[in-house]
């Protein structure tokens, strides 16, 4: 099959670009640890309130781990627990969240913390809160009539 010379040039350029994109996200994911949230742990969604760590939502200092804090969130229609939390600036935090009922979103607006919460699964994301400010947490997956009222707040303080 004949392919025009210019089309070959274009396809080589295009495919190379795609390869560069894939290499950048691939190296970032597999060598620098920037994978999208993909926690494989499960939980009984009907017993979230009595299962650690979700029996105590909020920020907890931890020792001997790669991160300094664990920030536990429990989502249910149509609220997050805690409804507001303060995080010291520069803290390396593992955000751990799950849902008690339907699918919810967990998006800290203006950051890369953006994960789906699905009943039966735990979602996790590790990041360093290196910019001070007030960050809105919104539910970004439709969960019912009160979906747009579902929010929380993280204050990153000096």
């Amino acid at each position: 099959m004949h392919i025009h010379k210019f089309e070959k040039i274009w396809l080589i350029f295009g495919i190379t670009t795609l390869l560069v994109f894939l290499t950048v996200v691939g190296v970032s994911a597999f060598y620098m640890g920037n994978q999208p949230p993909s926690c494989l742990a499960t939980i009984n969604p009907e017993k979230v309130d009595t299962t650690a760590p979700f029996d105590e939502p909020g920020l907890k200092k931890v020792e001997g781990k790669e991160w300094d804090y664990e920030l536990i969130f429990v989502a249910s229609a149509f609220a997050y627990n805690p409804g507001q939390v303060e995080v010291p600036k520069g803290a390396k935090v593992k955000v751990i969240a799950t849902t008690k009922d339907v699918i919810h979103g967990f998006e800290v607006a203006g950051t890369n913390i953006n994960m789906m919460l699905e009943p039966g699964y735990i979602s996790e994301f590790v990041t360093t809160f290196d910019k001070a400010g007030e960050y809105l947490i919104v539910c970004n997956e439709y969960c019912g009539v009160g979906h747009h009222m579902m929010s929380s707040k993280i204050e990153v303080v000096e």
Partner: peptide, 26 residues
Amino acid sequence: LASVFLLGFFLIITWVGVYFLFLDRF
């Protein structure tokens, strides 16, 4: 050829733009 390359540069600029947003955010 010129047209597809303009298109290609647009794709690259968009992608790199969002990639830097990703790098800038925590």
